[in-house]
């Protein structure tokens, strides 16, 4: 009986949150709706990195590369070939995932900090490649502009802040649903097992290599989706949105929220994405406080804002 009550309570909270999210854009100013959109993008990126960093414990400080691949896939295919944005949504995800498979396969055996520097390297290679405009495709430092808005067929075009707000949060919602299911699946448990002890995981028959690769592929795919939506919202993409600093921010989203915690990734995205907006009045001191706040956060809540509860096993 207790369990049923708990589920009902959870469902109740979810419905209230969903209704609040639906009403929000109609009562808030356009500025706030835009802030909420970017919060959604950060949340999606946080969720995608959470798979790699949170679930499997692999240090990925080059996640912006996958985001960039998704955004540029959309930008280039849309402006060159005129393929609609919604068709490109899965294409961008798959391209980013394929890219992750291609570049991570040879280095997936590296441990800890060595993998970390390789992902940093990949991030930088992608950024510099975009800057150098290979084959005239990426437009160099200016990037690609003139990207279409997403159309739902006919006159239904998403071109307002409210439209994009719903687009990103529907994608975030679906991702959260999928990720929660994944977390409790055989794959999710195997991932956590690898994070806790790789050698023990291998000894129990978990295929460590392919599961590690899978987490990169899935994480990159989600980041690619975020890239697609970002590109169509901004209508232009340029390499400066995909720097090492950005990768660090996604890294902090996951750790501020709590490793492997799905609500944590969303909360972390709020902390990282909204902080600079809320404290705009501090002007040039803003990032100074941001840095200090990160240190303070780790002092007061080292496990993150919403740490993952370990169901049943009693392992801490």
């Amino acid at each position: 009986m207790m369990k049923k009550n708990k589920i009902l309570k959870k469902a109740g909270i979810l419905i209230v949150v969903a209704i609040a999210l639906c009403i929000f854009p109609f009562v808030a100013s356009t500025y706030l709706v835009d802030v909420a959109f970017f919060f959604g993008i950060y949340a999606l990126l946080g969720l995608s990195l959470n798979i790699v960093l949170g679930e499997v414990g692999l240090f990925d400080l080059g996640h912006a590369a996958f985001y960039a691949v998704g955004a540029y896939t959309t930008a280039i295919l849309n402006t060159r070939l005129g393929i609609p944005i919604f068709v490109l949504l899965p294409v961008s995800g798959l391209t980013a995932a394929g890219f992750a498979w291609l570049v991570c396969s040879p280095v997936i055996h590296l441990r800890g900090d060595y993998l970390c520097i390789v992902t940093i390297g990949l991030g930088e290679i992608v950024r510099i490649a975009l800057l150098n405009d290979p084959g005239g495709l990426t437009g160099g430092p200016n990037g690609v502009f003139g990207i279409d808005r997403p159309t739902l067929g006919g006159p239904l075009v998403i071109d307002t802040s409210i439209g994009f707000y719903f687009l990103i949060w529907i994608v975030v919602g679906l991702s959260i649903f999928g990720l929660v299911r994944l977390q409790n699946s055989r794959i999710g448990r195997a991932w956590n097992c690898i994070r806790e002890d790789e050698v023990a995981a291998e000894a129990t028959g978990i295929n460590v290599r392919s599961l590690k690769l899978l987490c990169f592929i899935l994480g990159a795919g989600l980041a690619g989706l975020a890239g697609n939506i970002y590109a169509s919202k901004m209508m232009c993409v340029s390499p400066e949105s995909f720097t090492f600093m950005d990768s660090c921010m996604y890294f902090c989203i996951v750790l501020l929220g709590g490793m492997g915690s799905i609500p944590g990734a969303v909360i972390g995205a709020a902390a990282i994405g909204l902080f600079p907006e809320i404290f705009r009045s501090l002007a040039k001191y803003r990032m100074l406080f941001f840095g200090a706040a990160m240190v303070a956060m780790m002092y007061f809540r080292p496990a993150g804002l919403w740490p993952r509860k370990r169901g049943g096993s009693g392992v801490k």
């Binding site: 660090c248 890294f251 902090c252 750790l255 501020l256 490793m259 040039k284 001191y285 990032m287 100074l288 941001f290 840095g291 200090a292 706040a293 990160m294 240190v295 956060m297 780790m298 002092y299 080292p302 496990a303």
Partner: peptide, 22 residues
């Protein structure tokens, strides 16, 4: 922060980096 483990220390290091730069 060090007693809390390696990862919080990494975030703290990134925080210090942003702080110093600014």
């Amino acid at each position: 922060i060090y007693p809390a483990g390696r990862l919080p220390a990494v975030v703290s290091a990134l925080g210090v980096s942003i702080f110093l730069e600014n």
